[in-house]
Amino acid sequence: MNMAGTPKIASLTEPEAQKRTPGVAAGFAIAGWLVPGLGHVLAGRPGRGVIYFLTVAALAITGFLQRGFVFSHHFVDAFSLLGFLADAGTGIFYFAAKIFELGGPDIARAAGDYGTRFIATAGVLNVLIALDAYSTAIGEKD
């Protein structure tokens, strides 16, 4: 954002990221949760953003292809709530799960069980990345 508060496209490729207000940084973090890495792109760190997107995508898609279990928002106990929160951390990949998992989950096999962990790890990692985007945007990190 520039001084007037309007988007400044040129800043996406500038080597020096400018400091943002906490409100704007929170917006970047939410954007980074929805689309992994987008928070860093908006904060002026496009290279990092691309790497983060690829890492979260690699974990989530591996989990989907192994037919891991994706927890629904209709959680019934504390474990399924934690599972939902971890899975929802993947942002758009959570909503795209049905595209990748046409056959549905299959946790009877070890691969399906591993897939569940891959998806949850992708979500937790993305939450960490979103928090990192916030720190980067407010200038705590370079």
Partner: peptide
């Protein structure tokens, strides 16, 4: 599976 997981997580944490 383990190797792939380790590789991806290591890259993300390193960056």
């Amino acid at each position: 599976d383990m190797t792939w997981f380790a590789l991806v997580i290591s890259v993300a944490l390193a960056v």
